[in-house]
């Protein structure tokens, strides 16, 4: 059984630093890994999902929590 999914809290981290931090985190992980990220609503939510999909990663779940979002990302193989 796989361990708990790592969470990267990007509260307050602006674009495009937030996307960059996610890509760096995914690059450090093995293939087919999952990563949960916490993102602010607004500009981060408008930009980050698209930039991750541009890099081939999949957003497999998204959940709104007040003014923030929790996204589950699957690293591209």
């Amino acid at each position: 059984m796989k361990g708990p999914v790592e969470v990267l809290d990007l509260t307050g981290v602006p674009c495009p630093a937030n996307s960059a931090r996610i890509l760096l985190k995914l690059a450090q992980r093995a293939g087919d890994t999952l990563l949960d990220i916490i993102l602010d609503d607004g500009e981060p939510m408008e930009n980050v999902p698209a930039s991750l999909e541009d890099e081939g990663h999949k957003i497999v779940a998204r959940e709104r929590k007040g003014k923030q979002w929790k996204l589950r990302i699957q690293k591209s193989l």
Partner: peptide
Amino acid sequence: FQAAVAVE
């Protein structure tokens, strides 16, 4: 974005 990744 390439530059942003390098900075981060």
